[in-house]
C-alpha cells in the first residue's frame, strides 16, 4: 500500500462533496446546542461514538471484503432518518465518481452499477480504500476523522468560530479518534465471522431528529 494514497483520500479537498455537509452541526447550532468550542467538542465526541463508529465499521467491513450489498442494507437499518439516508447515498455517489476517475476498479464499477443512485458513503469509501490499496484501518480512520472534521469546519463558518479553536478540538479528540477507529476495525472483523448484523449500531437521537428538522428548512447553508 501507499501511505500517500491515504492522504489523497482523507484530504478535505478530495472532490467528493463532503464540504457541503455539516454532519448535523448546522441544526445543532440553530437549536442553540452548539455555541462555542466546548459544545463543538462534545458534539463531535457524541457523533464519534455513535454515527462515527457505525460508518467506520461499515467502511472497514467493505475493505475486508464483506458483501457491499449486505453492508448497504445494514447501513439503511442503522440510519432511521430519511434525510440522513439521502445525504449518505448522495455522498456515496459523489465519492464514487471521484474515486472511479482516481483509482479505477472493477469492484467500484460493479457497485456503481448495482446502486445507480448511490450506495451508502461508508460502503463506497471501503471499496475505494480497497481500490487504492489501503487497509481496513485506513478506511476506518478516514471515516472517523471525516465524522469530526466535517462538523468542526462547518462550525467555523456557522459561528465564525476561530479556526484555531476548531483545530484544537480535533487535536483534543485525537485519542478518541484512535479508539473509535480501532473499535470499528474490531467490529468489522467480528462481522467477518458473525455477519453484518453484529456490526456496531450506535444511534444518536438528536442527530436523527435534527437532520429531519434541518431538511424541512427552506434555506440552509449545508446540505445536511
Amino acid at each position: 500500500m501507499s501511505r500517500a494514497a491515504l492522504l489523497v483520500l482523507a484530504d478535505g479537498r478530495f472532490p467528493a462533496g463532503g464540504h457541503a455537509h455539516s454532519g448535523g452541526a448546522e441544526a445543532a447550532v440553530k437549536a442553540g446546542r452548539i455555541t462555542g468550542a466546548a459544545d463543538l467538542e462534545e458534539f463531535c465526541r457524541g457523533r464519534l461514538h455513535t454515527a462515527g463508529l457505525v460508518s467506520a465499521s461499515l467502511a472497514a467491513a467493505a475493505v475486508l471484503g464483506l458483501d457491499p450489498v449486505e453492508l448497504d442494507g445494514a447501513a439503511d437499518a442503522r440510519t432511521p432518518s430519511p434525510a440522513l439516508r439521502v445525504a449518505s447515498r448522495k455522498l456515496g455517489r459523489q465519492l464514487m465518481r471521484a474515486a472511479r476517475a482516481t483509482w479505477p476498479s472493477a469492484e467500484l464499477d460493479a457497485l456503481a452499477g448495482r446502486f445507480p443512485k448511490g450506495a451508502h458513503q461508508p460502503v463506497v469509501l471501503g471499496l475505494v480504500a480497497r481500490a487504492a490499496g489501503l487497509g481496513a484501518d485506513d478506511a476506518a480512520y478516514c471515516s472517523v476523522y471525516e465524522c469530526v472534521s466535517g462538523p468542526a469546519s462547518a462550525v467555523v463558518r456557522l459561528l465564525s468560530l476561530d479556526p484555531f479553536d476548531a483545530t484544537g478540538v480535533l487535536a483534543r479528540l485525537a485519542p478518541e479518534v484512535d479508539l473509535v477507529a480501532h473499535r470499528a476495525v474490531e467490529g468489522a472483523r467480528c462481522a467477518g465471522e458473525g455477519g453484518v448484523g453484529v456490526l456496531p449500531a450506535g444511534g444518536a437521537p438528536l442527530l436523527e431528529i435534527g437532520a429531519e428538522v434541518h431538511a424541512a428548512w427552506a434555506v440552509r447553508l449545508f446540505a445536511s
Partner: peptide
C-alpha cells in the same frame, strides 16, 4: 463520551 452532549 458525548452521550449527554449536543449530538445525542
Amino acid at each position: 463520551g458525548g452521550w449527554d452532549g449536543p449530538a445525542v
